[in-house]
Write a protein that binds this DNA or RNA. Structure first.
Lengths: 245, 245
DNA sequence: CAGGGGCTATAACAAATGTTATGACAGCGG
DNA sequence: CCGCTGTCATAACATTTGTTATAGCCCCTG
């Protein structure tokens, strides 16, 4: 059993499609530069032209846009195993920022090395493209979330998604997972005010659907949470075992 | 000067990156089956496993999800030149529907032919991937739109985007373009009620920013429309001439 | 040419969500 | 150990947006 910083990336990619031992080895062979980043700090700035992409090893990151009127909208939350700026391989200017939500550990891989890997290992290339497409599928679902669900369901849905993403890379047992982010950040992700996020979290608690204390969240009633969230996991395109609930 | 049904696709791809004559020829050589589809009809159903992808030749299409409570959220609007289900090449199950907004003409291309094209013409492959990534960038902006902009700005933003997309494929002159869709459809796209869409459209008119009669929309004050929309076209990743305003 | 259906426009009212303010509490740094 | 700062919780109130209802209009079809 190897142990590499990129184990979590391999686990993530395998949650959406299988990889052979050779393909895994090729991923482990990627040149890395690993950086620890404090909380609330940009990893990639809006407007940058990156020459490398990153893998989340530990912690939570988000992608966001800041509007001229000061509001910030988070449009994705990233957990270990994610590659949040893979698109910069083909779109050279960043149209949004990438920042840490919590203190994180991030691995950077030069674009050149990724391109080489993708040309030598077509199935790894497919897996990475698939990852980008799932990323886009999650964006679509977020549009539905902020556009069509009321506040209570919106939060419930976000929790359902985070739970499955974390469980797919082995970061959740017994419906419990780390959720070390603030209600203000949830507000930026759901397009709600912090006050209303608080109201809705209180409501989820009093309905017995979740507990959430000191950064640890537990889903107490998964079926009911899914129901109120109108959650259908198809869009995550997880393979059989990662999707089983 | 050739004239092919796929001219509009070539124009679209060239609006985000150049193609050589040979590459264009390879695209024109794709096997097509062209279908006219009446308005308000599914082209691909949620849950389908398509074996072909389509190109919009004429008309307006949208991708959408229908929630259990009956609300429909549109998460993209597609115009001629777009390939709205290109992702089905790599994600085999549709997690959303694709439907016409207006009577449309659509060309279907078998996945096998697309895969062959992409393996033989790496730069066309890059262009198609780039198209998918721009698609994802538009999703991100839509999350911002429904999550962070008030109704008035939200509509303004949607009009800015449609205008630039249409102009990039030659379907707009003098800030005028066909907008043959209903306010109810705009409501589904912006996460607003039809009544509030109407209020906001009235407001845009009375502010002198647009006129919109019998399916023809004209932007009367582009700078001001962009300003109230907080519109920044970077996310469309258009090349120089397509982006000039 | 008449009738009907869908779309637009508008009003009155209801509900969801935002804003501002404040207190309690926990964690951290001096 | 104290005080600061950030976060959570909650209240009172403001605003935006949704809902229901209705009327007019345009366009299509018979």
């Amino acid at each position: 059993m190897v142990s590499s910083p990129l184990d979590v990336l391999v686990r993530k990619l395998e949650s959406i499609g299988p990889l052979s031992k050779d393909e895994q080895k090729a991923i482990y062979a990627l040149p890395l530069s690993i950086r620890s980043v404090p909380e609330h700090q940009d990893v990639v700035h809006d407007g940058d032209r990156p020459t490398q992409s990153c893998v989340v090893l530990e912690g939570f990151l988000c992608r966001y846009k800041q509007l001229p009127d000061g509001t910030r909208q988070i449009h994705s939350i990233h957990v270990p195993g994610d590659m949040p700026d893979l698109q910069s391989l083909h779109l050279n200017v960043m149209d949004h920022g990438l920042a840490t939500l919590t203190a994180s550990k991030v691995a950077f891989i030069p674009h050149a090395a990724l391109r080489k890997l993708m040309s030598e290992q077509p199935r790894v290339s497919d897996a990475l493209w698939r990852d980008i497409l799932v990323d886009a599928a999650i964006f679509r679902e977020w549009i539905v979330n902020v556009g069509a669900r009321e506040a209570y369901a919106r939060l419930a849905h976000l929790l359902c998604e985070l739970f499955l993403k974390l469980r797919a890379v082995g970061l959740s047992q017994d419906f419990t997972f780390q959720l070390p982010i603030t209600q203000a950040e949830l507000a930026d992700a759901t397009g709600l005010s912090t006050v209303h996020v608080n109201r809705s979290v209180m409501h989820l608690r009093s309905a017995g659907l979740i507990t959430w204390e000191r950064g640890e969240c537990k889903i107490e009633n998964w079926d009911e949470l899914k129901r109120v969230a109108m959650f259908d996991p198809t869009y995550l395109h997880l393979n059989g075992e990662a999707k089983a609930a």
